[in-house]
Structures are given as C-alpha cells and as structure tokens.
Design a protein around this nucleic acid. Structure first.
Length: 917
RNA sequence: GGGUGUUUAGCUCAGUUGGGAGAGCGACGGCCUUACAAGCCGUAGGUCGCAGGUUCGACCCCUGCAACACCCACCA
C-alpha cells in the first residue's frame, strides 16, 4: 500500500460523488435541510468559511447516512457594495469611473466579472469536501430570486410597511450611498474639542460657550440647548444667539438630553448632521439645515466662503475665521469615537436624504416571540441575548442604496412625484390604471443586499411559486453562523420568513466562534496574519506565503514586520496537510461559541491521525487477505466482545455530541477510540491470534472477520468528519466487507449503550498487567525487545484464570524470556515488583535490574501511596463527612483506603528485601 | 456607560448531576518491535485568575474584585 498522501485521493472522490449525484436529496425518509449562508459570488474562501462549512458538512453527511432526505442548498450572494467596489477599483486602474460608462454598461461589466471570478468559491467549497447540492444552485440576482424580492417589496409597500421619506441616514461620502448602522465601525481616534463663543443676539457682549468636535457643522446649527434645571442658564432660555459666520439667529432651548456636567453645559444643535440633534430637532420643531453635499464637500447653505470645500478644509477655515473674531475660546485634545465605513473606511456623515424604509415594529414582534416561545432555539442559549438586544431596539430599516449593482427598487414616479410600486412599469400602469401617455420613471436606487438575503431560506426553494421543494424542505433545520451575523442576517430572515411563509426559517441557530490566529488576533489582510485554507490543504512555500501576505498592502511600512513574523512562524512554509486533517482540526476546536485560536500544530497532529487510520487500514488489509467468507456466528472472544462494545459506546458518544453540536467532543471520542483503543490495544491484542499458531483456524477466521467488519464500521463513523480518507479506505475493502456504492450512502453507526461489566474488568486486568511490566521496563531502561523473566505471585483464583485466558497476549506484548507463577513455598527471588490488588508481578533483579534505580522507583511509588492514604484518612477522620456524606461515597473511600494500605505494606516489604541485598 | 463571554499543565483546550484534576502538542528518558519514526513505550509538569460565602466536601453553586476578548451605545 502506498504511503498516505491526501493529494492523491481527495480530488478524485469529490468528482466521483458529484458525478454520481450523491449530493442530491434521496427523496426518501424525513426531510433534513440546511441553507448555506451565501458567500459573496466573487469572493474566495477564508478560514471562517472553511470552518463553518466543515461543521455543516459533518451535520449533513451524518444526516444523509442516517437515511434522511437531505438537502444542503447551495447559493451565492451578489454582495452589492463589495462587488461594485471591486469592479470600480478595477476600472480606476484603467482611469475610468462607473459614471463614465453609465448604468447599463457598468452592470454589464459587473456581470462579466461575476462570470470570470464567480467559480473560485465553488471550487474551494468542493476542495473542502462540502456535499452541497449544486444542481439547484441559486444566486441572489437570479430571475427567480429577483421575483421573490419584487413580490416581497410590493406586498410590504401595499400593506404600508415600506415607505419612502427624508430621514437622517449614515452616509458614506466616498461610496456616495447610505449604509446600514451595522456597516459603520466606530473606533477611538485622537481629536480635539473646540470651545466656541456664541454671542447673544440682543447683547453681543454676552456669549455662551459651546464645546464641539465638529466645528464645521456650526453653519447648520439651528439652536443651542441647555439643561432645563441648569441654573447657570435658566435666564437665557428663550433668548437668541447670533450664529457667527452666518446671518442667522437661533434660539436657546432647554432639553433634558443635555449633560450639565460635560463641557460648558451648552450644546450646539445641528439636526441635519447629528443623530441626537436630529431627534432634538424633531422634539422642538427646529429647522434642519443641511450644509453638506453627498460627496462630503460643503454646499451653498454653508455660504459662499465655504461652498465646495471639503468638510475638513472647511473646518480649518471656520476655526480660523472664528479665531479672528475672538470667538474661539480654546482647543482641547479629545479622544472620540470616529465612525468609519466598513468597506470604504471613509468617515461617515449623518446626512438628510430621501430613502426607502421598512417599518420594523410589526415584523419584529413575532420574530422576538418566535425565539421567546422556543420555536427557534439558539445554541448556545446565551447567543439569544445578542438577538434580543438587537431586536428590541430596532429602528426602521433603511433598505435603499445609491448603487447600481443589486435589485433595482420596483417603484415608479410620475411627473408629480406620485409613487407606484409594481414588478415592472407595465404592471404599474395596469395596477394603478395609468395612462400610457403619462411618463413614468423608475427609482434609481437598489435594495440593501441583506433585503434579498433575508428571503434566502424560502426564495432558494422556489417561492413565490408553491414548489414541492418548498413544501418538503422548508423550514430548514438549522442555521450555522457566527455571532457577528445575527443582527445582519439571522434576525432579518426570521422577520421576513415569519411574515411571508408564516413559519420560522429554521428550528435552530447554532452560533459558532470566530477563527483567530495563534495569538487570538482576528485574521485580516492588513495585519498580514491571515491563512488561506487552501494553503493548509495543498501546502505553500515560505516565499510564496510571504509574497501573498505582503502584496497589495495598504500600508507598506507593515511589510517588513509581516515578513519577519511570517518567516518566524513558518520558516519552512506550510506542508500539504490535506482537507481531512484541516477539517478534523476544526471539529476538535469547535466547542460552543468561544473563539478558536488556529494552531498549525493541531493540524499536524490530525494529519498524523489520518496517517494512523491509513496504516491501520494497511494492517487490516494484510491481516484479512485470506478471509473468503465470514463465519456464521460472531466471535465470542473476550477481546473482540470488548472492542465491539467499546465501539458501540464511542458511536453512541459521537451521535450524542453531534446532536448537541459539540463537534469537539465528537472528534475526541472518535480519536480516542481509533487511536487509543482500536490501534493501541485491539490491533496489538489481535496479533497473537492472527500471527501465532496458538489459535485454531476457526479462531483466526473469527478474528479476521471481526477486524474487517469493525474497521468498516469505524470508517463509517469517521466519514462525516474525514470524508476523503474514509471513502478511499472503504472502497479498498474487499467487496464482501461493505454494501453500497459509496460510504457516503452507507448507514451511520448509531451505537448502543451496552455495558458488560465482566468483559470490561477482564480487559482492564490485562491492560493493567501489561502497563505494570512496561513501567518496570521504562523506569529501568530495559529495551522493549529484550526478553525478561516475569513471575506472578500470590493473587486470587480470578487472577489465575485470567492469566490462563490471556497468556498468548501477555506473551506477545510483554516479550518475556519466561513467564509463570511462583508456586514454591519459599519466598520469591529479589525482584522489581508491581502490586495489583492481591497480585504481585515480579521481574527478578538478577542481571537486569539496577538496585538503586529500583529503590528510587519504589520510593516514588510509596510517596504517592502515602499521600493518598493521608488524604483518605483525613477525610474519613472527619466525623461530619462520615455522618453527612452518602454511604456509597463513604464506603468507596474506605475501600480505597484498604487497597492503598495493602499496597503500602507490599511495597514496603519489597523495598526492605531489595535494600537488604 | 451597558451587556456577554473567557481565565484549568510551558502552549491550545476538555472537564457531563458538587465526591480521587484530563487530552493533544511541547519537554525529558528508552526504542528503526513485521501496520504506522507522520510511529511505539515510559516519565515529569497544575494554589483550577484573586478574595470571601454556602456545604461534611467546591474547578463546578453564590457574592465581590481583577485581567483579557467581543458586542451594543455614544457626552456635543
């Protein structure tokens, strides 16, 4: 058999699965479906995706093997702003702006880009082994999904839940579009606090001092506010300010929003450029004066002196002007939170503009209810707090974006500005009975990308048509997602799905942690600490990795630092570990919602695990070649009864862990069973049966048969986690050891909770004996291959019968030069000893054992025993303990004490005899 | 400012209803043992963040504190 090489097996099996149509729903059994969180169509797979889709694939593969009618629905997202930005940047390299070529040509160009780059993420998902149903793949801008979007928009509009209005929204002056609150990232930056003097209109010698971080917006001030209880200013309320640099007079008003403690207790109010001021403006019926253009320059309302200046140039000029009039009191350094656009990194401006909104309250109420009443369950439960916190403070959702790439808003205007909403102009004319002569123009804006994503679970299944897919696969079973996406997407899916399907989009939301680097830092391009899952699968040289991390950096000064860190962490680059190892790493790190630090050492460990499985297959193959038919009765050999039972328990544990979404526990159960039980013990214990002539042919055949069948079940149990290696090994089993065309379609072992105490005890005895001798060898540095005499002494009838039963195994594992019982009445020769209950296992000193070393070993053992005895005695000496603890607990302690005391006696006697030599 | 989570071996993390602290990696010692050196065998590492409380008994339950992480809000 070849050495394990993931690259040799992974690609071919995926292709075979896909060609055979194994990813399609079987059409039989209860339905089980999951909708993929749609990746950006032009994106590439990052670690977060790789992690998330690995989790889902394990869920899906297990369910498929359990016989469910399983669908993992594939689809991609048009990702409006991101995609438009990428294409615009490409055009910028050619010296072009989107406006140079016009809307239709630009959209055409984005489609071309989508066609040329849209396949990358799909290929990468295939490399991960994701068993997605590709045949029904959808895209948010598909005809079908677009119809769903328009239908929803129209219905919400007709019901009055969508409205258009002039509101203050987050405005990105670079992208020149509104963006959502969630796309605004506020970070602390060093700035200043300007203290400005505002003279009273009727007494220019008197002034108020206001403190502001945005002096340029003063041109749009329409009031100055103080706290109603602030005695300093009580007399001024209702009087007026002559607003500097303008001709305007503005009132001094009282509002409880003002903090008396901060600054001077006077606040300038600019309703058109600040969200709090906007609210206050509404409360006091203040005029709203917008002094900025959409591109962040000042407009004509700012006055001729400042018009057309960028807002920050205007700031400098305004401060200067105020200083010249002695209206600048002082400038203080000030740390403030600066809002920036997630995509453009531009400073976001609150701007008054005409936008479309979804009225949220009527949609949010049932959505909150669905989680409260358990119709939707968050796992872990804590995660629902994020959801509730977001949903209970929800403001109306601004859904219009001043972009071209996306679903164009299906609203039409006549010359008077009347609004008509329908799927097309023709439909609008029919619906509203508009004369053909009257000109209609369509709204220029597109919808927020999340508007279409919100419909994902049902639009991908064919809605608004009543398809059979929709009837079968909706609602989906579980949404697997990071907590960062709960507000963006999960909440909106719940609202929209309840509204239009009258049912939940999914029964469960499994919230996983975010993948970070080994230091716990978020992986990002700018930090140069990102890992590409494909590089872990295929390997990458140090040179290529450095190049990848340092190219296209925004800040070139980071380059050296990143290069140095990368070469230090990956001096040899990254070896090709393969998909199965990467997947298994994800499972083993996925516990609850905590973040996971990605550690390449773990990947290496699980690659080794794959190798272990590979070699176990090799052993199985070599050992069972001569097996032609299976015996009619199953093996009743103790070793086999034991390992089969251990397998059932492991399978049980894996299934339970998967039901709880504890992928780490599932992975651990699998790993422990395969490596520590199956390979370390069962394979070793089967060798004397298979390879020595101490067993009959019938016994050999029984063991061969058991080995082969057990290994086949192990592969099935491991398949959802390591799909490629398990398929490869499964296919290489003889035909009589498997049924079906692919392990993908074979039955998943469910395990059973059977525990035969007697069998466990017997094998535990065997393991203890073997470990005891290994301990002596190890401590005495006796090479494992060197034969040593082993003498059993004292012990019970039970010990003797077990000895008889397991003699061939003891012989094979312990490599004794001689082994047997000390039957003479004389005391046994001076020996290294291990005590197991009443039984002593002796290795005579003669020529083998170093006296000093053995004394040291015994002392170490005695110290441990003494500590344990003291601990138990103290406990039992406590009357309260004996009186209050349950009797089983007390009895257990008493038993432990007598065992330890017995050990102590034996060990002390041995020590004395060796010392006497 | 509000909220959530985390803190266990050198590192990354488990620890099910309160009853003798575990794994992997790393370290140390011994082995090329007929599946596997990507391996095998053995050994050594822990005041379970700190301080109280409940209890016969606390890694586990309660209170307070600290550090770190993330989320939400923004006093201009």
């Amino acid at each position: 058999m070849e050495k394990y090489d993931p690259s040799q097996i992974e690609q071919k099996w995926y292709q075979s699965w896909e060609n055979q149509g194994y990813f399609a729903p079987s059409g039989e059994g209860p339905a089980f479906s999951i909708a993929i969180p749609p990746p950006n169509v032009t994106g590439t797979l990052h670690m977060g995706h790789a992690f998330q889709h690995s989790l889902v694939d394990a869920i899906i593969r297990r369910q498929r093997m359990l016989g469910r009618n399983t669908l993992w629905q594939m689809g991609t997202d048009h990702a409006g702003i991101s995609t438009q930005l990428i294409v615009a940047e490409q055009m910028a390299a050619e010296g072009l702006k989107p406006s140079d070529i016009g809307r239709d040509a630009f959209i055409e160009r984005v489609w071309e880009w989508k066609e040329s780059s849209g396949g990358i993420i799909s290929r990468q998902l295939r490399r991960m082994g994701a068993s997605l149903h590709w045949d029904t793949e959808r895209f948010t801008l598909d005809e079908g999904l677009s119809r769903a979007v328009v239908t929803v928009f129209e219905r919400l509009f007709d019901e009055g839940l969508i409205y258009r209005g002039k509101r203050l929204v987050n405005w990105d002056p670079v992208l020149q579009t509104s963006i959502s609150d969630l796309e605004v990232i506020s970070e602390e930056e060093q700035g200043h606090l300007w203290h400005l003097r505002y003279p009273l209109a009727d007494d220019p010698n008197q002034h108020l001092i206001v403190a502001t971080t945005r002096p340029e917006t003063m041109l749009g001030d329409t009031a100055v506010a103080v706290h109603p209880d602030d005695e300093r200013y009580a007399a001024l309320i209702g009087r007026h300010i002559a607003l500097p640099l303008t001709e305007r007079t503005i009132p001094i008003i009282a509002d409880r929003y003002v903090d008396m403690e901060f600054g001077t207790g006077c606040v300038k109010i600019t309703p058109a450029h600040d969200f709090n001021d906007y609210d206050m403006g509404n409360r006091h019926d203040l005029p709203m004066i917008s002094v900025m253009n959409p591109d962040g320059t000042m407009n004509e309302a700012a006055g001729t002196e400042f018009e057309r200046l960028d807002r920050f140039e205007a700031r400098a000029k305004i401060v200067n002007a105020l200083e010249e009039c002695s209206l600048l009191e002082k400038i203080e350094p000030h740390t403030l939170m600066v809002p920036r656009g997630e995509k453009s990194h531009a400073i976001i401006e609150p701007l008054l503009s005409d936008q479309w909104f979804v009225q949220i309250d009527p949609l949010a109420k049932p959505a909150i209810q669905a989680v409260e009443d358990g119709s939707i369950e968050f796992i872990p439960k804590q995660a629902e707090n994020i959801y509730f916190a977001w949903m209970r403070e929800l403001k109306d959702w601004c859904i219009s974006r001043q972009q071209w790439w996306g679903h164009r808003i299906p609203a039409f205007y006549d010359a008077e500005g009347n609004i008509f909403v329908a799927e097309s102009e023709a439909a609008a004319r029919a619906k509203y009975d508009i004369d053909d002569a009257a000109a209609l123009t369509q709204d220029e804006d597109v919808l927020d990308t999340w508007f279409s994503s919100a419909l994902w679970t049902f639009s991908t299944l064919g809605w608004p048509d009543k398809t059979s897919s929709l009837a079968t696969f909706h609602p989906t079973k579980v949404m697997v997602t990071g907590h960062d996406i709960i507000s963006f997407w999960v909440s909106r899916m719940i609202m929209m799905t309840l509204k239009f399907m009258d049912e939940v989009p999914f029964n469960q939301v499994y919230v996983h942690g975010l993948v970070t680097d080994a230091e716990g830092q978020k992986m990002s391009k700018s930090k140069g600490n990102g890992l590409d899952p494909m590089d872990i699968i295929d390997g990458i040289s140090a040179e290529a990795l450095v190049e990848k991390r340092t190219s296209n950096l925004l800040q070139t000064r980071m380059q050296d630092k990143i290069e140095k860190a990368t070469r230090k962490e990956f001096p040899e680059g990254i070896p090709a570990y393969g998909t199965d190892a990467l997947r298994f790493t994800f499972y083993s790190l996925a516990s609850g919602a905590r973040g996971l630090r990605f550690d390449m050492k773990r990947v290496e460990g699980y690659r080794n695990f794959c190798n272990k499985l590979w070699n176990a297959a090799n052993f199985t193959h070599l050992s069972t070649q001569s097996l032609n038919e299976h015996p009619t009765a199953p093996s009743n050999n103790t070793i086999e009864l034991w390992i089969n039972q251990a397998f059932e328990n492991a399978a049980m544990a894996v299934n339970r862990a998967m039901e709880d979404y504890r992928f780490d526990l599932a992975a651990k159960s699998l790993y422990d069973f395969i490596w520590n039980e199956f390979c370390d013990w069962y394979l070793e214990l089967s060798k004397p049966i298979l390879q020595t002539d101490q067993f009959s042919q019938a016994e050999k055949t029984a063991t061969q048969s058991n080995l082969l069948q057990l290994f086949e079940r192990i592969l099935r149990l491991a398949h959802p986690f390591m799909p490629f290696i398990t398929e490869e090994l499964w296919q290489s089993l003889p035909a009589h050891a498997r049924t079906g065309e692919s392990i993908m379609l074979a039955a998943f072992p469910q395990g059973q909770d059977s525990e035969d105490r007697a069998i466990l005890d017997e094998v535990a005895w065997l393991k203890e004996i073997v470990s005891a001798i290994r301990n002596i060898r190890g401590e005495q540095n006796i090479p494992p291959g060197k034969p040593i005499p082993i003498i059993f002494h004292l012990g019970s009838d039970n010990d003797r019968s077990r000895y008889q039963q397991f003699l061939p195994m003891l012989d094979a594992l312990l490599k004794p030069s001689s082994i047997g019982w000390h039957e003479s009445t004389e005391s046994p020769p001076p020996s290294a000893v291990q005590v197991i209950d009443d039984l002593q296992i002796l290795v005579p000193l003669a020529g083998l054992i170093d006296k000093a070393q053995e004394l040291e070993r015994l002392d170490k053992e005695l110290t441990k025993v003494a500590q344990e005895i003291t601990r138990i005695q103290t406990k039992l000496g406590n009357e309260q303990f004996v009186a209050n603890a349950p009797t089983q607990v007390v009895d257990k302690e008493r038993e432990k004490l007598s065992v330890q005391q017995h050990r102590e006696t034996e060990l002390t006697a041995q020590r004395r005899r060796i010392e006497a030599l």
